[in-house]
């Protein structure tokens, strides 16, 4: 893994077999929010959280930027276009992808201690 994270996130990333899509470094996340409805994320996600979704539209990056979400996890192996990744780089948002389903990823994230 290219980027340096705090120990917790590194463990978390290993737990969900996530691959980073961006080169953003020093990502810290506190808690996680899961939703595929952008307006729901705008309403309920908290700054600093990891956001897991199957949506790969560029609006995801805009919403993450608006809510100060430092890292987005795409589940079910869904990868966004190169221009979405480039926009995330620009915004300093880390994008991750995991082959796991959202449910599996959520379970493992919880187990790895992300709820604390």
């Amino acid at each position: 893994m290219k980027f340096e994270t705090n120990a917790k996130l590194t463990a978390v990333l290993l737990a969900i077999q996530a691959t980073p899509l961006t080169s953003t470094s020093e990502t810290n996340v506190q808690g996680c929010y899961i939703s595929d409805l952008l307006s729901d994320v705008l309403a309920h996600a908290q700054p600093g959280m990891l956001w897991a979704t199957v949506q790969i539209h560029r609006n995801v990056v805009s919403v993450a930027a608006t809510k100060d979400i430092p890292a987005v996890l795409f589940t079910c192996g869904r990868k966004p276009d190169a221009n979405v990744i480039a926009e995330a780089e620009e915004e300093g948002i880390t994008l991750l992808v995991t082959p796991l389903t959202t449910y599996e990823a959520a379970g493992k994230l919880w187990q790895a201690g992300l709820h604390e």
Partner: peptide, 27 residues
């Protein structure tokens, strides 16, 4: 082509409204 670029533009409150509707249409 709205995407929020940094905190300043967020304060200008140029919304995501059209971008989100466009996404819904395309989807």
């Amino acid at each position: 082509n709205q995407r929020t670029t940094g905190k300043q533009s967020r304060k200008k409150n140029i919304g995501l409204g059209l971008a989100m509707l466009r996404q819904t249409c395309e989807m």
